[in-house]
C-alpha cells in the first residue's frame, strides 16, 4: 500500500538524519551544566545549553567554569569497595577514590560532587559533559587513551584470594584451579593472557558482573581462587576472614589507575596532576591507602 511504503521510507530517512547528526556533532566544549548528583538523584531543573564552541575542537576550559561554580563533578560507580562504594545509608559515596577526589577538589579550591552511574554508562556521560572527571578505579589503557586523557594517581596489582584449603601464591599456582574474576577487569584479561600465552591452564575461568558474586563463589566452594584488584581483595578478606584470605599476587606490573578527563582539557589536567603530586608529597595518598586498604597495596 502506498501509505505503508512511504512511511517506511520516512522512518529510514529520519534514522539516517539522526545518525548523521549525532556523528557530525562536536564534543561539548565546556559551558555550564546543571547535573546535580551527590550520590542521590534529585530531579534537577532541566537546563539546555548551546555548545560553546564551533565545529572545530576548540580547547576546552572546564577548569575556569569549575572554579567559578565551586564544584568539581566526578563520576563513579559506587559498587566497588573499598575504592568507591556507599555508606550504611545505601547512598552516600565513600571510599578511597571518594576521599582522594575530595582532597583533589580542595586543592583546586572547590568541592567534589559525585554522580553515581553504572560502569556501562560512565564514559559516555563524561564525554557528554554531565561531569568533568571519572575517578572510579579506571585502568589507563591504550584504547581508553584514544578517547580520554588520564592523570595517574595509583597503581593496582592483582591479588589472589583463596578459599580455605587452597593456597594460590603466584601465577603458576592457578594451574588446575577454578578461578573467578570480575567481568571486564584487568584481572580477567590478565588471566586470559596467561592462558593464551604462558601455558597456564586453570581448570575453569569464570567471570561475574560484581566483585561480590566472585567472592560468593569462593564462599560456597564453587571456586578455588578469586583474582581481583588487590585493594578489593583486601576489603573482602577483612569482611570475612574465615572465608577469604589474600594468599598471593599476580606476577605483573601493577596497572596504572587514572582519573579520566575529556580530551583537550589541558588546564584541568595540569591542575589535577599538580594536586595529585602535592598530595603524594604530603603523604596524604599513603594515609588513604592505609585507611582503606589496610596495608600499602600499590603506590
Amino acid at each position: 500500500m502506498m501509505r505503508k511504503s512511504s512511511s517506511f521510507l520516512l522512518v529510514i530517512l529520519l534514522l539516517a538524519v539522526t545518525v548523521l547528526a549525532a556523528c557530525g556533532g562536536t564534543q561539548q566544549s565546556g559551558g555550564s551544566q546543571t547535573d546535580g548528583g551527590s550520590g542521590t538523584q534529585q530531579p534537577a531543573a532541566g537546563q539546555t545549553q548551546e555548545p560553546a564552541g564551533g565545529e572545530d575542537q576548540t580547547p576546552a576550559n572546564s577548569l575556569e567554569r569549575i572554579k567559578a561554580e565551586g564544584v568539581l563533578r566526578v563520576g563513579i560507580d559506587a559498587s566497588y569497595p573499598p575504592m568507591e562504594f556507599v555508606d550504611e545509608d545505601g547512598k552516600t559515596p565513600i571510599g578511597f577514590d571518594v576521599d582522594m577526589a575530595s582532597a583533589i577538589a580542595e586543592k583546586l579550591g572547590v568541592k567534589a560532587e559525585f554522580t553515581i552511574i553504572d560502569w556501562s554508562g560512565i564514559q559516555a556521560s563524561l564525554l557528554a559533559g554531565h561531569y568533568d572527571a571519572i575517578m572510579s578505579s579506571m585502568t589507563i589503557t591504550e584504547g581508553r587513551q584514544n578517547e580520554m586523557d588520564f592523570v595517574q594517581y595509583l597503581t593496582m596489582g592483582i591479588a589472589y584470594a583463596s578459599r580455605p584449603g587452597v593456597d594460590v601464591r603466584t601465577d603458576s599456582d592457578l594451574e588446575g584451579k577454578v578461578v573467578v574474576v570480575q567481568e571486564e577487569t584487568t584481572a580477567q584479561y590478565y588471566i586470559e593472557d596467561l592462558m593464551a600465552n604462558a601455558g597456564i591452564q586453570p581448570r575453569e575461568l569464570r567471570s561475574f558482573p560484581y566483585a561480590t558474586d566472585a567472592f560468593r563463589e569462593l564462599a560456597n566452594g564453587r571456586a578455588d581462587v578469586v583474582a581481583i584488584d588487590a585493594p578489593v581483595a583486601g576489603y573482602y578478606a577483612q569482611l570475612d576472614p574465615e572465608l577469604y584470605r589474600v594468599t598471593g599476587a599476580a606476577e605483573m606490573e601493577p596497572d596504572p589507575i587514572g582519573i579520566a578527563l575529556r580530551k583537550g582539557e589541558t588546564e584541568l589536567r595540569e591542575a589535577i596532576q599538580q594536586a595529585v603530586d602535592e598530595l603524594k608529597a604530603e603523604g596524604v595518598l599513603r594515609e588513604l591507602q592505609v585507611k582503606w586498604f589496610g596495608d600499602a597495596a600499590g603506590q
Binding site: A21, G25, Q28, G36, A44, Q47, A128, G129, H130
Partner: peptide
C-alpha cells in the same frame, strides 16, 4: 522507532548523544 530500538539505547541517546546536538538534560 521507539518500539523497534532498545530502551537502553533510547536512554543513553537522550542522556549522552543529545548533548552533542546542543541539548544537555540532567539525569531525571
Amino acid at each position: 522507532v521507539f518500539r523497534g530500538t532498545p530502551l537502553l539505547l533510547q536512554l543513553l541517546f537522550i542522556y549522552n548523544a543529545l548533548p552533542q546536538l546542543g541539548l544537555l538534560l540532567p539525569a531525571f
